[in-house]
Amino acid sequence: MFKFFPLKEKGFFAENDDELMKHIQKGDHNAFSNLVHRHSSKCYSIAYRFTGNVCDAEDVVQYAFFKIWQKPDLWQKKHNTKVSSWIYKIITNRCIDISRKRTPSGNLDLDRISSAGISCEEQLAINEKHRMLENAIANLPINQRTALNLCFYEDISNKDASEIMNLSTKAVQSQIMRAKKNLKEMLRNYHDSKK
């Protein structure tokens, strides 16, 4: 899995992300390292859920943090946006840009699925179900996929997801409900076609 390793400097600690961003806006490398350390795992997870590919997810995270370092003034406290929501929005937007440039392949890295204690046949069945679900998610409309990934898989609150997606909280909830309905229908159609 993709990991960032923070710079070590004794004595540097920021209570919150807002404080880190103030230091980053002044060019503080250690504050930036702290921010990366705090958010890189969640960013990678979001990017991986969107892209289904380790290399693409790593590229997205690297792009986002590079953008934050190059243009930290894009985040402004007066806009009342949480730093984490701003970062996740950069990640999400980059993933959407990538997904628009290519069609879904459904090639998820299956080595992340544990096979301990089950037979080969059971593992194959699990892999097939997983592949089928990931393909169905990849074929959802982008807003439904984004809402589902952020709220369900990444456990981001609907309120924070609404900031990231530039939608109202009710619209995010609606996108999640539509996504679930569409997934149910896609999976039903898949099962019906196998009969």
Rank of each mutant, 00 (worst) to 15 (best):
18 D>H: 14
91 I>S: 07
136 A>P: 01
2 F>Y: 15
157 S>W: 04
114 S>V: 14
181 K>R: 04
65 F>H: 02
93 N>C: 10
37 H>G: 02
109 D>G: 07
186 M>A: 15
59 D>F: 11
121 E>G: 12
56 D>E: 13
165 M>Q: 04
53 N>W: 00
37 H>E: 09
75 W>Q: 00
129 K>A: 08
122 E>W: 01
78 K>L: 06
188 R>E: 00
1 M>Y: 04
35 L>I: 07
79 H>W: 06
6 P>A: 03
75 W>Y: 10
16 N>R: 08
108 L>D: 12
46 I>P: 04
7 L>F: 14
35 L>P: 09
126 I>N: 08
19 E>F: 12
34 N>F: 05
38 R>I: 11
104 P>W: 07
133 L>V: 13
153 Y>D: 14
96 I>Q: 10
25 Q>M: 13
169 T>K: 11
176 I>H: 00
184 K>I: 00
76 Q>P: 02
121 E>F: 07
7 L>H: 07
102 R>E: 14
6 P>F: 13
52 G>P: 03
150 L>Q: 03
26 K>N: 11
140 L>M: 01
64 A>I: 07
19 E>P: 05
40 S>N: 04
170 K>T: 15
163 E>M: 13
182 N>F: 06
150 L>T: 00
51 T>C: 08
24 I>P: 04
47 A>H: 10
70 Q>S: 06
35 L>S: 10
111 D>A: 12
88 Y>V: 04
67 K>E: 12
62 Q>F: 04
71 K>A: 11
141 P>A: 07
69 W>I: 01
25 Q>C: 10
64 A>L: 14
56 D>G: 02
85 S>L: 00
168 S>Q: 09
61 V>D: 08
109 D>C: 15
75 W>K: 02
51 T>R: 09
13 F>K: 11
192 D>N: 12
191 H>S: 08
119 S>A: 09
122 E>V: 02
7 L>I: 05
62 Q>A: 11
172 V>S: 03
13 F>C: 09
135 N>T: 09
57 A>F: 02
60 V>M: 10
128 E>F: 08
53 N>E: 01
19 E>L: 14
39 H>L: 04
130 H>G: 05
85 S>W: 02
138 A>P: 01
99 S>M: 15
193 S>C: 01
165 M>L: 08
25 Q>I: 12
7 L>T: 04
39 H>G: 02
98 I>N: 04
153 Y>V: 09
29 H>A: 10
178 R>W: 05
117 G>N: 09
56 D>A: 06
39 H>M: 12
30 N>T: 14
190 Y>P: 01
75 W>I: 01
158 N>D: 06
59 D>V: 05
95 C>R: 01
38 R>M: 07
185 E>I: 07
98 I>A: 01
189 N>E: 10
72 P>K: 00
111 D>R: 15
179 A>N: 14
79 H>I: 08
60 V>W: 01
71 K>R: 11
48 Y>V: 00
110 L>C: 15
103 T>D: 14
129 K>P: 05
39 H>V: 06
160 D>Q: 12
103 T>S: 15
75 W>E: 05
14 A>P: 04
6 P>H: 09
133 L>P: 00
92 T>I: 06
114 S>L: 03
141 P>I: 06
76 Q>M: 05
179 A>Q: 08
